[in-house]
């Protein structure tokens, strides 16, 4: 007798050692594995020609959250170092684009590329001191950094570039479709990078740091340099995403750009929900949360964030590994390096 309803998946897993997915016919499985991503990719590629501007914009935001959740995951998910200052990296990327386009009239392609490079350099430079601090101190320091950046960007010192507290506005010259495709590529790139890292020696080393940093050192892993590499990579991808996001916002003000309770919180919840240290977890989290929140919560600003907070607590308490490993544990999804 077969039990197909997901609610009985638990019992199914106990009763039958095989994985739900593997009960599907082999040929069907193979066809699905190859065709589904292709169909999805094709659908996303033609979306700007088929759908309304609203749908395209929403998908653009999904891409942004995929890219950020993925980047957060890449560093924090794999090393266990909680990056509470993530909004700072988005901000640096966004401001780089805004300054290059707004003040120097650069082409957006150049500006967004530079956003990635500048944020990576920034991540590298602050990573050197910050990553010396362990665990909790790192988290505290990053929270301080994000706030410090907000104040720094509004100071007179920086005003010739950032416009200070008055902010900086610019016209990106990008069409909605261009923004959409570019952000789509960044999301894809972030996911690809996480996939490559996950399946590399480097990824294993990072996971060792997460489990026991001292042991990792004893094993001969240069933990500081590995952390720094992951952090820089995270900063690079975040810089690209933040840079493109700036083109969507059009106008940057420190007070609204560096909001921890938004730009740090949301990627964390998405990545944690999907599964830290997985490849597809952050994607699942980002897609799910963007769509659900747009459909249901977004109209109630505060409630919307209350729910994000509650979800975070529920995950940490009851499903700390995230949805994908949770499903894998229950043998609903296969354990494969693709996830």
């Amino acid at each position: 007798m077969r039990e197909d309803s997901p609610s009985s998946a638990d019992r199914a897993a106990e009763a039958r050692p095989e994985i739900v997915w593997e009960r599907v016919d082999r040929r069907v499985r193979r066809a699905l594995v190859w065709s589904l991503p292709l169909i999805l990719l094709f659908a996303l590629a033609i979306l700007p020609y088929m759908a309304s501007a609203y749908t395209v914009t929403l998908t653009f935001l999904v891409f942004f959250w995929v890219a950020t959740a993925q980047s957060w995951n890449l560093f924090s998910g794999y090393t266990g170092y909680v990056n509470f200052g993530y909004v700072g990296l988005i901000g640096v990327g966004a401001y780089t684009t805004a300054i290059l386009i707004g003040k120097f009239g650069a082409h957006w392609l150049l500006a967004v590329g530079a956003a990635g490079a500048v944020t990576a350099a920034f991540g590298f430079l602050i990573g050197i001191p910050f990553l010396r601090a362990h665990g909790i101190y790192f988290a505290i320091a990053m929270l301080g950094l994000a706030e410090g950046l907000r104040v720094l960007f509004s100071m007179d010192l920086m005003a010739p570039l950032t416009g200070g507290g008055a902010g900086i506005g610019f016209i990106s010259g990008m069409s909605l479709a261009a923004k959409y495709y570019a952000m789509g590529l960044v999301a894809l790139l972030s996911t690809a990078v996480v996939f490559l890292v996950a399946n590399s020696r480097f990824g294993l080393q990072l996971l060792t740091i997460r489990e026991d940093e001292l042991a990792a050192q004893v094993m001969g892993i240069n933990t500081t340099s590995k952390k720094l590499m992951a952090f820089t990579l995270c900063a690079f991808l975040t810089g690209l995403a933040g840079g493109l996001y700036a083109a969507y916002v059009n106008y940057l003000v420190p007070a609204t750009m560096f909001v921890t309770a938004y730009y740090t919180l949301i990627p964390i919840v998405m990545a944690t929900f999907g599964g830290l240290g997985t490849t597809m977890g952050p994607v699942v989290g980002a897609v799910l949360f963007t769509i659900i929140s747009e459909a249901i919560w977004a109209r109630f600003v505060f409630l919307h964030l209350v729910i994000f907070g509650a979800v975070l607590i529920i995950i940490i308490l009851f499903m700390p590994q995230g949805i994908i490993p949770w499903l894998q544990d229950r043998r609903i999804l296969p354990r494969t390096r693709w996830l």
Binding site: A166, G167, G169, F170, I171, V249, N250, Y251, V253, A255, T256
Partner: peptide, 28 residues
């Protein structure tokens, strides 16, 4: 001010006549 500044470039891009009712900055 902040919201108006944010939508200003969109309005200009799309070409929609608008009278910004409550905005006191000159930036846009």
């Amino acid at each position: 001010s902040e919201l108006t500044a944010a939508v200003a470039s969109v309005i200009e891009e799309l070409g929609v006549p608008t009278a910004a009712s409550i905005v006191a900055t000159l930036a846009p």
